[in-house]
Simulated scan of single mutants.
Amino acid sequence: MNKPYAEVIGDPIAQSKSPLLHGFWLEKLGIEAEYRACHVKPEGLADYFVDRRADSSWRGCNITMPHKQAAREHLYSVEEIASSIGAVNTVYPAFDRMLAGTNTDAAGFLEPLREDLAQEHYFRMARILGTGGAARAIIAALAGEGFTLVVAGRNPDKARALLDELAPDGEHHAVHLDHFAEPTDFKFDDREGCLDLVVNATALGMKGQPPLKFDLSHAPPRSIFYDIVYSPLETELLADAAKAGFRTLDGLNMLIGQAAVAFEHFFGQAAPREYDAELRELLLR
């Protein structure tokens, strides 16, 4: 029998860190399996799923751009979280090898916030910068945790449409990305008993990209800054926030968290998270 395997698919795919992540956990657990990268173009997506469903060694796949939405039409079932986000990033064979899809991005994003979310708050607000694929999962995740959302994008109409689709309940707001670039003289209270987030869900600040322009005067006291960029690990946004005394969360939190959920789907065991420090060092080489 061939060795069991899972893989990540996308177009392009060479940049994916998923093989490194899953390979690290497979080695730590001593599981005789592989995790691969597979280049799949949009016109080959249907054939890919037909072929893999027939392959008894295949345990599933992670999906990156541009297939996260197109994959849904090739699946027998889609979990509620993926339906609400409107995107699938993990596919696995369920009963009789019928293909099921889910989305692990929301769970991965929320993971480092679980201790905060377990507490009660008078008010929760998140300023989410970005309107792309990652922002979809973050908007859905935070709306489900009772946050009032302010979504900023280069196109405020797109931001409004995302809120209407993903968070139709609540008094949420859509603004232009430039709204947060200029200082504000708004006087926040001390926000004790509240939970405030500032989330960068854009590629701005990533190596090779312009920095994200965010004036810290827009952040209420005790805000948590969360940047999903992980190259560099400490973006200019996080460095400025940390210097000003804010708590910060880097992009490896979401990357590792979402992969861990998928790993259990594929290989039936929890990822060995006690090695996260070692894994972080490996990912940053």
Results as ranks from 00 to 15, higher is better:
148 T>W: 13
32 E>G: 07
283 L>F: 08
70 A>L: 10
235 T>H: 00
226 Y>N: 13
238 L>A: 01
133 G>N: 14
159 A>H: 06
222 R>F: 07
170 G>I: 06
285 R>V: 04
94 A>E: 12
254 M>G: 02
42 P>C: 09
107 A>D: 13
128 I>F: 04
252 L>K: 03
210 P>I: 03
123 F>Q: 08
191 R>L: 02
174 A>G: 10
6 A>W: 00
277 A>C: 03
118 A>R: 15
152 A>H: 03
239 A>L: 14
113 L>M: 07
227 D>L: 01
266 F>P: 06
138 I>A: 10
280 R>M: 05
109 F>Q: 03
198 V>D: 04
205 G>I: 00
195 L>P: 06
208 G>Y: 03
272 P>K: 10
115 E>A: 14
228 I>R: 00
140 A>I: 02
145 E>S: 12
237 L>T: 01
238 L>D: 01
89 N>V: 10
42 P>D: 11
134 A>D: 08
215 D>S: 02
20 L>M: 15
170 G>K: 12
33 A>E: 03
107 A>G: 15
136 R>F: 05
72 R>V: 12
232 P>A: 06
128 I>Y: 02
7 E>Q: 13
117 L>W: 13
158 K>S: 14
30 G>E: 08
11 D>T: 12
92 Y>P: 05
205 G>D: 00
212 L>A: 05
221 P>R: 00
205 G>K: 01
200 N>D: 03
72 R>C: 08
106 A>Q: 11
233 L>S: 06
41 K>F: 09
18 S>K: 10
163 L>K: 11
86 G>W: 07
15 Q>G: 01
58 W>V: 08
10 G>L: 03
283 L>R: 07
97 R>Y: 07
168 P>A: 02
106 A>C: 08
8 V>Q: 09
134 A>K: 05
210 P>W: 01
62 N>A: 13
138 I>L: 09
266 F>S: 03
176 H>I: 00
134 A>R: 06
141 A>C: 12
273 R>F: 02
194 C>S: 15
258 Q>C: 09
186 F>C: 01
280 R>S: 06
128 I>C: 02
147 F>V: 08
229 V>Y: 05
264 E>H: 14
213 K>V: 02
97 R>L: 04
